[in-house]
Design a protein around this nucleic acid. Structure first.
Length: 139
RNA sequence: GCAGCAGGCCACCUUAUCGCUGCAAUCCUUUGGAUUGAAGAGGAAAGUCCGGACACCAUAGUGCAACAUAGCGGAUAACAUCCGUCCGUUGAAAAACGAGGACCAGUGCAACAGAAAGCAAGUACAGUUCGGCUGUAGUGAAAUCAGGUAAACUCUAUGUGGUGCAACGCCAUGUAAACCAGUGUUUGAGGGUAGCACGCCUAAAUUGGAGGGUAGGCGGUUUGAACUUUGAAGUAAUUCAAAGUCUAGAUAAAUGAUAAGGCUCGACAGAAUCCGGCUUAUGGCCUGCUUUUUCU
């Protein structure tokens, strides 16, 4: 498997297809029990190196706790904003990491955010996520 | 015009760019991918309160019990829903609401007043076949006589098995104490069966077959008591006929973001097996009706 081919499978920069979605009960359990955590209010990022068995480098999930948002339409809204923010800024990750990762964005705020708030938090998280990974590889 | 009552309709819009989900067509060597095309949440999708469809299970059957419903007539697959109508209550009216079957089958209950609303007593006067026999007065809605009451037991009629698509079927993986069939064995004991009785089910051992749970994939899964238009029957709910349409199928769960413009500045709120209702949340528009009072 050539690295160029795996990159070639992602032709456009700003997509978020089914392949990049994290699935399966076990993956979530492992991520919650063993994953590392980064926080930028109102978001929390959990991540863990994981081999998916397909070409995807990164799989992402988005979670909104029922405790914070009781109405389904509110949870949907937050999850959509998070997905959209990741989609717009995924190049930050793809261009700067090696290895496969499972990512999970957890919304820990109590109020309905705007898109710009979410996007800023996602950008900061991704940058924070990339830096230590580079550091570990280099050292 | 205000106020009130009833019914119906809509659910910010337009354009551009970047994305998401399944579907169809075409292309590529397959798993799969690419391109194009037409689609893509609600009136309540909600609460899970009723009624069904569908699926499985004798732990599913029968009788009793229990529960639900309750004028009358109709509609429906069915209902506690809907329509019509009578009666009652509320309101000035338009209208709304109703736990509206039966107390000459039985049992019970009854404030105040009253001696007494049953198992215990009887005031006054009069009559008398001299017996607390009869009448009148007095209390009360009702008095040794019937009434009232069934959101009192009860009776009557009708209906109700249970569990829910995480049902259920198949595939791949694949170890048993579980499953199926035969042999075998018994007071079918003990145990199980939402209440009771009957009934039903059930053991160890051994041989063979088949292969659980958990996680995964596929089916179930969207063509349906469907929708639109027209005609006919009916007061109506609704039914019948003809023509046309295909209209969400996700599964850590698809509808979003950005930019610009407009207006009345956008409420409640997200399909999860599917339908019919009910209830609750909620912005706006339109139509019809009522007239106690006030204004013109």
């Amino acid at each position: 498997m050539e690295p160029e081919q795996s990159m070639g499978s992602i032709k456009k920069e700003h997509t978020f297809s089914k392949k990049e979605k994290l699935k399966g009960k076990k993956a979530f359990e492992v991520l919650f029990s063993e994953g590392k955590t980064l926080k930028v209010y109102p978001l929390q990022l959990r991540y863990l190196p994981m081999d998916f068995g397909d070409e995807s480098k990164v799989k992402v999930a988005v979670v909104t706790p029922k405790r914070k948002f009781k109405k389904a339409f509110q949870r949907n809204r937050v999850k959509r904003l998070l997905r959209e923010a990741f989609r717009a800024n995924k190049s930050l990750v793809f261009n700067n990491i090696e290895g496969n990762f499972a990512l999970l964005f957890l919304y820990i705020g109590h109020t309905m955010p705007t898109f710009s708030e979410v996007e800023a938090a996602v950008r900061e998280l991704l940058q924070n996520f990339v830096k230590p990974e580079l550091h570990e590889k280099n050292s």
